[in-house]
Amino acid sequence: MNEMLAVFRRELGGYFATPLAFVFIVIFLFAMGSFTFYLGGYFESGNADLSIFFNFHPWLYLFLIPAISMRLWAEERRTGSIELLLTLPVPLWAAVLGKFLAAWVFAGLALALTFPMWLTVNYLGSPDNGVILAGYTGSFLMAGGYLAIGAALSAATKNQVIAFVLSVVVCFLFTVSGLPLVIDFVSGWAPQALVNTIASFSFLNRFQSIVNGVIDLRDLIYFISLIGVWLAACAIIVDMKKAG
């Protein structure tokens, strides 16, 4: 546990030791704002809720989250510090989890800094703050899912660009698996059970229901277990690389 906290603190500190944290947060907030107000037509919609804001999250995360996760392991491998980390008495799970949690907390911080949105909507009307809280929770969980996928793919390469591109592709597949784009492609030939399984992997469907204020335990379990599975994959990849 101590070791995990040490890795976590170092990793989180690493974001703020370079301009990375600043640049990321500024771009994140700018993108969130401009998507919501211009593309989403927030004011024109006349609704006192944040559903327009939240609806853009999956698509923004698709590119912004891999930008955080790509460096998690690939950079350690490139600079050689991974040799240091793995020869320190740190259990593998502690290294994997410590790094992931640091990235997740960082993403959570960026998300929390969108609070002026919440202030605005409360100023303009009287929204259901429970639904908004659900939206933030769902968004945070979804960010964790994207990050876990990105962490595992980052462990597979020492090239951050490759890690980024692979993460975007895999995250995209997870995002859209419930959309007609994918379902129509599969339903023609695959058994209904498989189609349902694929559709059930969709971030979009599950996130949508959370944003609507319906926190289903199954959706929470889905995101948590998705994070668990991808982090386990990450640990396995890191361990496999030790074999050369």
């Binding site: 040799e83 240091l84 020869t87």
Partner: peptide, 9 residues
Amino acid sequence: PEGAPAYPE
């Protein structure tokens, strides 16, 4: 380790 890797930042 070879090359004395550390965290550069």
